[in-house]
């Protein structure tokens, strides 16, 4: 039985790669600086639409961390995002006017770019509103982590999505370009996550956090998945299945210990809930280009009309990675 299943997943992986190959025509290179990529560079991949205001901080954050090159697909932005990216010396840009949804939320495009440029590199796949935090990230660059992962023969690194939100209404404090979004959205839910195993793909399925608490009280099964594996020593045989939630081959999804120990893991601080959010939600509701016909955004829009406050008495204020590790949201594993 398991042989049959393994074979099916192999077919599935081939199919994903074929799909990525087909979808490569949907993205057009705008500026290609990938010639400058060195053998052991760390690459970041991202798909975005109208994120101009977030880009300066996003790029700087990951540059400081040690990302050497950014490969970005611009999905038809009209707010100057593309023009801004073109000016950056370490960014290669592709653009697409095609459907985000039918490229499976950009996964097909990035699978193709990773297959073409990511082979043999440590690849980080993040959205512009996601900030990676890993153990010792205040004193050790990302390269220290990837070197350690290499030395430990670990191919993939888990970083759960942690929804950050401001205290007060989300429209209260405007976000300025270049500003650290954590200055505004500095709060999170520390202990309301529910985890189950996906036996088919071997990954964990994590739900909960502020979004489940506020928007999915009545239908928790539809709450967004928070498990993510954004950092992978890429091979052209690999493929993301569903956003960065899971990968094939499925061994890459075993980022957790099953025998009681803790593996090293990080957190993706998800700074979605800034003042830019309402506009975004309204637009996405029109476009219906997001997951499950934007059921997420639908739920937000309904609640957001009532002007909710995500913050509650038991929200935690973000301090640093050590706090997240003490709270049990991430772990140093045996990295010391």
């Amino acid at each position: 039985m398991s042989i049959i299943q393994s074979y099916r997943l192999r077919l599935k992986r081939k199919q994903l790669l074929a799909r990525a190959f087909r979808k490569r025509r949907e993205i057009k290179s705008v500026v290609d600086r990938t010639d400058g990529i060195q053998g052991d560079d760390i690459l970041a991949f991202s798909t975005l639409r109208n994120e101009r205001v977030r880009l300066p901080f996003f790029l700087q954050y990951y540059r400081d961390m040690g990302v050497n090159h950014f490969l970005i697909v611009d999905n038809d932005s009209d707010d100057g995002s593309r023009e801004y990216l073109l000016e950056q010396p370490d960014v290669s840009v592709w653009s697409s006017k095609h459907s985000y949804r039918r490229s499976r939320y950009g996964v097909d495009w990035l699978n193709w770019l990773q297959r073409k440029h990511g082979d043999g590199h440590w690849c980080l796949v993040v959205d512009p509103d996601e900030l990676l935090v890993y153990p010792f990230c205040d004193t050790r660059p990302l390269r220290a982590l990837t070197d350690w992962l290499d030395a430990s023969s670990i191919r993939s690194f888990s970083a759960m999505l942690l929804d950050m939100y401001p205290k007060g209404r989300i429209n209260e404090r405007p976000y300025r370009a270049g500003q650290n979004p954590l200055e505004i959205a500095s709060w999170f839910d520390s202990g309301n996550y529910s985890i189950s195993r996906n036996w088919k793909y071997w990954n964990l399925w994590i739900q909960g956090g502020a979004r489940a608490r506020m928007f999915f009280q009545d239908n928790p099964e539809e709450a967004p998945a928070l498990n993510k594996i954004p950092l992978v020593k890429w091979s052209k045989k690999y493929a993301y299945v569903d956003s960065t939630h899971m990968l094939l081959p499925r061994g890459l999804n075993l980022v957790f210990d099953e025998w009681g120990g803790e593996k090293a893991s990080g957190v993706l601080l998800h700074t979605k809930f800034l003042d830019t959010f309402s506009a975004k939600a309204a637009e996405e509701l029109q476009r219906r280009e997001h997951y499950s016909k934007s059921v997420e955004y639908l739920a937000y829009a309904q609640s957001l009309d009532d002007d909710p406050e995500l913050w509650c008495k038991w929200s935690e204020k973000y301090i640093n990675w050590r706090q997240l590790e003490i709270l049990g949201l991430m772990s140093k594993g045996n990295w010391a």
Partner: peptide
């Protein structure tokens, strides 16, 4: 007693 993204024992 901790269940999290990188510790999920059988």
């Amino acid at each position: 007693g901790l269940y999290m993204q990188s510790r999920f024992p059988h």
